[in-house]
């Protein structure tokens, strides 16, 4: 899912960087003093969660969970996921430097969209009801991310179109898994700590 340096055309890279700066700025403004620790610890836990490998058939996929990040953090998911991507690029060599903006938008914008669309729904009704909306939100975020990755590749040149299509179809199983996991995660959170999403939806 990470795009690397050198693959995208300059307008896409610059556009991505500008959009990322905007998103991060909005996210930072939503973070007052009391929410910095929450966002920081959640950012760290998404970093750790992305290292969980879930078996699927003979292979396994690693989790992205940007939908869940959005549902919990709202706009603050933008800077939180940016920090995760920055640390991954610097210390693990995943992704790239000039494409950091594009990668941030591709991961974080779907998270924010998932929060906008489904954030209110998961706090309502029974926990199972919330979990189903959470699952749909998780699948939506991955679908949007792969869609954005495909768009950034396709905008950079027609030669990337097959790769863009491949990225999208290869991620359909990931969408299903993320949906199920996000659903159960929301279900557990609704049962164990019900105030979480009710508060998160209004933040």
């Amino acid at each position: 899912m990470h795009i690397v340096d050198g693959a995208l055309s300059n307008p896409v890279v610059i556009g991505g960087a500008v959009a990322a700066v905007g998103g991060i700025a909005i996210g930072l403004r939503s973070l007052d003093l009391d929410r910095i620790p929450t966002a920081g610890v959640l950012s760290a836990s998404f970093f750790v969660a992305s290292l969980i490998h879930v078996p699927i058939g003979p292979s396994s996929v690693h989790l992205i969970l940007n939908g869940l990040a959005g549902l919990l953090l709202g706009w603050a998911a933008f800077p939180a996921l940016f920090v995760g991507l920055l640390l991954q690029a610097v210390f693990f060599g995943f992704g790239g430097l000039t494409v950091l903006g594009v990668n941030t938008v591709n991961i974080a914008l779907p998270a924010v969209l998932a929060w906008m669309i489904f954030g209110g729904l998961i706090g309502r009704g029974s926990p199972v009801h919330g979990a189903i909306w959470g699952g749909i939100g998780g699948a939506f975020a991955i679908a949007a991310t792969t869609g954005f990755v495909a768009i950034s590749l396709a905008l950079s040149g027609d030669e990337f179109l097959p790769a863009a299509k491949l990225v999208f179809f290869a991620h359909i199983p990931v969408m299903v898994i993320e949906a199920v996991l996000t659903g159960f995660a929301v279900l557990l959170a609704r049962k164990v700590k019900p105030e979480l999403f009710v508060k998160g939806a209004s933040a």
Partner: peptide, 21 residues
């Protein structure tokens, strides 16, 4: 497996938030 991992992730998030408090 998927249900257990989902609960695992959910538990991690809940604990993270309580820790941050």
């Amino acid at each position: 497996t998927y249900r257990s991992f989902g609960y695992l992730v959910g538990m991690m998030m809940v604990r993270a938030i309580e820790r941050s408090e």
